[in-house]
Computed example of a mutant assay.
Amino acid sequence: MTLTRSISFVALGTALLLLIPLTAKLFLAEMAWSVGDFVAAGIMLFGSGLMFVLIARMSDNTWYRLGTAVGVGAGLMLVWANLAVGLVGSEHNPANLLYVVVLAVALIGAFVARFHPHGMSNAMFAASLTYVLVTAIALYIWKPTGAAAEPNVGLVTVLAANGLFAAVWAFAGLLFRRASTSGSKAGPRLA
């Protein structure tokens, strides 16, 4: 499939996914998305889809493509959850800004590895470890319990949710590791 056609599918998929909250907004009074929310969601969905297309095209290995899907999906869900409800306390808790470091580790690691499977695996494992460290720092500095905006958020809930996110990054690392041992000829190629 050509790059142009792949990008067209990403744009179409983004539009179709945005129809879900648009339909909900038309029929549910509780659906309080603004135009800005739709724009932000569109940018995140299209950007993630585009990133997947560009990275997945660098290898014809199925494990590499699955690792790409899980890694990009983890990044998308990290940003989405942080903007929607926050990962530590509410979305207004400044501790949530620390999670940008996780995305930076994953992206910088991927570029340093030149998108080769073994290096991508290391980048995803580093992102998982960074996620755990950022969560520990955030919980040490800012306590999630007792936050006025989220009084029902307990430590166990925060730890479970963040543990799940860290596990997803590690799973992406395992998929890339599998790609590196299965004879993938991955490397930068976009055509």
Rank of each mutant, 00 (worst) to 15 (best):
W142Q: 10
I43P: 01
L164I: 13
L66P: 09
V158K: 04
E30D: 14
V102S: 07
S182I: 02
R57M: 08
G73K: 00
R189Y: 03
L97D: 15
I137D: 02
I43W: 01
S48D: 04
A104S: 10
V88D: 03
R178K: 14
P117H: 05
S48F: 01
A170T: 05
G109P: 06
V105S: 08
W80S: 12
L26Q: 13
V168I: 13
S121I: 00
W33G: 02
L98Y: 01
A41L: 15
I141S: 12
G42D: 05
I7N: 04
F176V: 00
F165C: 03
W33E: 04
L54M: 15
V53G: 06
V158E: 05
V158G: 02
N162V: 02
G119Y: 08
N122W: 12
T130K: 09
L12M: 10
S8H: 13
A191G: 12
L98P: 02
A40S: 10
A29T: 13
V72D: 11
G163A: 08
L18Y: 10
T23M: 15
V85L: 09
M120W: 04
L97E: 15
A167E: 06
F38T: 03
F46I: 07
G89N: 04
G173D: 07
N96L: 07
T130R: 07
M44F: 08
I55W: 00
D60I: 00
A191D: 12
V101Q: 07
S6R: 09
A15S: 09
R178T: 05
F38K: 06
M77R: 00
V79H: 13
A110Q: 02
T62W: 13
A81F: 06
P188Y: 09
E30Q: 15
G71Q: 05
L45S: 09
A81I: 08
P117Q: 05
A160W: 03
G42S: 11
L87D: 07
M44T: 10
N152W: 13
N82C: 11
L45V: 12
A148V: 13
L50E: 03
L103D: 11
L3F: 11
T4M: 13
L159S: 07
A149W: 02
P117S: 15
L28N: 14
G73Y: 06
H118A: 13
T62I: 14
A127L: 03
A41R: 08
V100A: 15
I141L: 13
G183E: 04
S128H: 01
H116R: 14
E30R: 14
G163P: 06
M1S: 13
F46D: 06
G67C: 04
V112N: 08
E30I: 12
I108P: 12
F115K: 06
T145R: 08
A110L: 13
G86S: 09
M124W: 07
A104P: 01
V70A: 10
M120E: 05
R114S: 11
A123W: 01
L159P: 01
G163M: 03
A74Y: 10
E150C: 01
S59W: 00
M77V: 12
F46W: 12
L54W: 12
V102R: 03
G89S: 04
F27R: 11
M1T: 11
K25W: 05
A170L: 00
